[in-house]
Computed example of a mutant assay.
Amino acid sequence: MPTIAVTDSSWEDDVLKSDKPVLVDFWADWCGPCKMIGPALEEISDELGDKVTIAKMDIMANTDIPGQIGVKSIPLMVLFKNGEAVAQKLGAAPKSALKGWIEGEI
């Protein structure tokens, strides 16, 4: 399952009302580390898509939700379960570390 793009307007339906955990990657096009982890998140989404939705939110195009959540640095990955933020990871990491963290949290 490919990653999905989440926007300020789709946030409630895509993340808060999801019937499975959603990992949201807050990123921006100018962020080098964000670009580095993008392909790994795509692969993880394919591998774990039945257990978790991997979503990406461009903080430059969508400012409301990142502001409400308090995103100050990127890449920031926040895991939501039942509409609540339950875990977060700041910064880039190798695919194996990202996947292990996600699997440990879901």
Rank of each mutant, 00 (worst) to 15 (best):
residue 76 L to E: 13
residue 37 I to F: 01
residue 61 A to H: 01
residue 28 A to D: 02
residue 89 K to P: 09
residue 92 A to T: 02
residue 22 V to M: 10
residue 81 K to Q: 10
residue 5 A to V: 14
residue 60 M to V: 12
residue 46 D to N: 05
residue 57 M to E: 06
residue 93 A to W: 03
residue 61 A to V: 10
residue 58 D to W: 06
residue 94 P to C: 00
residue 39 P to Y: 02
residue 40 A to I: 00
residue 84 E to M: 14
residue 23 L to H: 06
residue 69 I to Q: 14
residue 16 L to H: 03
residue 90 L to E: 12
residue 55 A to M: 11
residue 79 L to Y: 01
residue 84 E to G: 02
residue 95 K to T: 07
residue 30 W to Y: 05
residue 26 F to Q: 12
residue 98 L to K: 01
residue 61 A to Y: 06
residue 34 C to Y: 00
residue 28 A to Y: 01
residue 49 G to Q: 13
residue 104 G to F: 10
residue 25 D to Y: 01
residue 62 N to T: 12
residue 55 A to H: 01
residue 66 P to Q: 07
residue 21 P to M: 13
residue 30 W to D: 03
residue 67 G to V: 13
residue 83 G to I: 11
residue 83 G to Y: 09
residue 5 A to E: 15
residue 22 V to N: 06
residue 78 V to G: 08
residue 65 I to T: 14
residue 44 I to P: 03
residue 10 S to P: 04
residue 97 A to L: 09
residue 76 L to I: 02
residue 12 E to H: 11
residue 63 T to M: 15
residue 93 A to V: 02
residue 57 M to S: 03
residue 101 W to S: 08
residue 69 I to W: 09
residue 23 L to E: 07
residue 101 W to T: 02
residue 97 A to V: 04
residue 49 G to P: 13
residue 102 I to V: 14
residue 93 A to Y: 04
residue 102 I to G: 01
residue 63 T to A: 12
residue 36 M to R: 00
residue 16 L to P: 06
residue 1 M to A: 14
residue 55 A to L: 07
residue 91 G to L: 11
residue 94 P to H: 01
residue 66 P to V: 04
residue 13 D to G: 14
residue 84 E to V: 14
residue 3 T to I: 14
residue 80 F to Y: 08
residue 48 L to T: 09
residue 6 V to A: 03
residue 25 D to R: 01
residue 21 P to W: 14
residue 34 C to G: 11
residue 31 C to K: 04
residue 43 E to G: 05
residue 79 L to P: 03
residue 40 A to E: 12
residue 85 A to Q: 11
residue 88 Q to D: 13
residue 70 G to D: 08
residue 100 G to T: 07
residue 88 Q to N: 10
residue 61 A to R: 09
residue 48 L to C: 07
residue 39 P to Q: 02
residue 93 A to K: 05
residue 89 K to E: 13
residue 59 I to H: 07
residue 66 P to G: 08
residue 30 W to M: 04
residue 74 I to M: 02
residue 103 E to H: 04
residue 57 M to D: 04
residue 3 T to N: 08
residue 64 D to T: 15
residue 56 K to S: 05
residue 37 I to M: 02
residue 53 T to N: 13
residue 98 L to A: 06
residue 38 G to Y: 00
residue 33 P to K: 05
residue 54 I to R: 07
residue 105 E to A: 11
residue 57 M to V: 04
residue 99 K to V: 09
residue 94 P to K: 00
residue 75 P to G: 06
residue 61 A to I: 10
residue 57 M to F: 05
residue 11 W to G: 05
residue 98 L to S: 00
residue 33 P to F: 01
residue 11 W to S: 12
residue 34 C to M: 11
residue 58 D to A: 10
residue 22 V to T: 03
residue 68 Q to R: 15
residue 72 K to C: 06
residue 9 S to W: 13
residue 100 G to A: 14
residue 89 K to M: 12
residue 26 F to I: 08
residue 58 D to M: 07
residue 63 T to S: 14
residue 25 D to Q: 01
residue 36 M to K: 00
residue 70 G to P: 08
residue 78 V to F: 08
residue 17 K to D: 15
residue 72 K to T: 12
residue 1 M to H: 09
residue 82 N to H: 10
residue 96 S to L: 01
residue 13 D to Q: 15
residue 36 M to P: 00
residue 77 M to A: 05
residue 89 K to R: 13
residue 79 L to K: 01
residue 9 S to K: 15
residue 33 P to I: 06
residue 104 G to W: 11
